[in-house]
């Protein structure tokens, strides 16, 4: 039998056989695939309304039957007085945010890895993860209270004689980016470090032994073994961060936004929400979303290309 098989002309196994062999795996994949189709593929048809005069009363059929409007929605997005500020705010908050949060998460993971006592390590880890599980509605409320005129921040700064009078931090547009980045960091530092911790746990222990033999200390292990070992993971995370450069945490921005900080808090996502969900200009909102997605795709490809050139690792 065996001989017969070998002597036959090799051919690709039939798809059906392949599927049968991997039934369990395909079953596990099914919910995710269905979710992708329902929430990511089918809604793509909705992009049509970025080019048409769609109105809600047309129903979903209107997506396909509404009139072509000669890129009017795109022209309105680009001619909006909010376009410049929202691009500036989106990029500003994200660039600065990622510039700070990625190294902080790596540093936190490295330091956490150096804690010898498992109990202390798990305590710090749990404490750092906890804020992630609070919704932004609650966490944002806490931040607003903390930074209000009679909040703890003012009490502290006045107690230390840093400021003479209480300040309404949330009303100061110039402070918004800092508040946004810092609150995001506090909330998600522990969570973002998980992926680096996982990468660190996969480092070959013999490499550390080599450093020991060479007389290196813990800093040398971190610098010359851990960091290079997790570099591919770091690059993947940077690629993700770059491709998501135009995505803000909408809920965070929405919760922290107010009329006095609007100048610095209006980002692409909040503009889309405002135009689409509050003012029902679905076409303009979809056009803004589409522009954002196209740029995000270009950023993703660009970041992947750069990563491959620099570190020889990339996503695709």
């Amino acid at each position: 039998m065996m001989q017969m098989t070998i002597s036959k002309k090799p051919r690709k196994p039939a798809m059906r056989n392949e599927f049968r062999r991997q039934t369990e795996l395909h079953t596990m994949l099914l919910p995710g695939t269905v979710m992708m189709i329902v929430f990511n593929i089918i809604p793509l048809f909705g992009l049509i309304i970025a080019f048409t005069n769609f109105k809600a009363t047309m129903g979903w059929e209107g997506i396909f039957t509404s009139q072509w409007n000669n890129f009017r929605n795109f022209r309105q997005v680009f001619s909006s007085s909010q376009f410049g500020p929202m691009i500036r705010n989106t990029l500003g908050i994200n660039l600065l945010g990622q510039f700070i949060s990625i190294p902080m998460a790596i540093l936190f993971a490295l330091l956490l890895n150096e804690i010898r006592s498992p109990r202390r390590k798990s305590f710090v880890q749990t404490a750092a993860y906890l804020p992630h599980f609070l919704s932004w509605a609650i966490f944002g409320g806490l931040i607003k209270n903390l930074l209000s005129a009679d909040g703890a921040m003012n009490q502290l700064l006045m107690g230390m004689h840093v400021i003479g009078q209480p300040k309404e931090w949330m009303a100061d547009a110039d402070c918004f980016w800092t508040i946004c980045i810092a609150s995001g960091l506090i909330k998600d530092l522990g969570w973002s470090a998980i992926i680096y911790l996982a990468a660190i746990s996969g480092v070959d222990p013999t490499l550390y032994e080599v450093v020991d033999i060479d007389g290196g200390n813990r800093y040398h292990k971190m610098r010359h073994v851990t960091l290079p070992a997790i570099l591919p993971t770091v690059m993947v995370m940077i690629i993700f961060a770059v491709s998501g450069m135009l995505n803000n945490n909408f809920t965070q921005i929405y919760v922290l936004q107010n009329p006095l900080n609007m100048e610095r808090s209006n980002v692409i996502d909040s503009y889309i929400y405002q135009i689409g969900m509050q003012q029902f200009q679905f076409g303009i909102a979809t056009a803004a979303g589409l522009v954002k997605s196209v740029f995000a795709l270009l950023l993703l490809v660009g970041a992947n290309w750069t990563s491959k050139k620099l570190t020889n690792s990339g996503l695709f």
């Binding site: 005069n53 009017r72 009329p259 006095l260 100048e263 135009i275 200009q281």
Partner: peptide
């Protein structure tokens, strides 16, 4: 009138974001 609807949105948003600052 889509042009006018757009002006309404633009100017109302500007009013909402600017007048409070002027009041202060």
């Amino acid at each position: 009138n889509e042009d006018m609807a757009f002006i309404e949105i633009e100017t109302n948003n500007y009013l909402e974001a600017t007048l409070p600052k002027i009041l202060l």
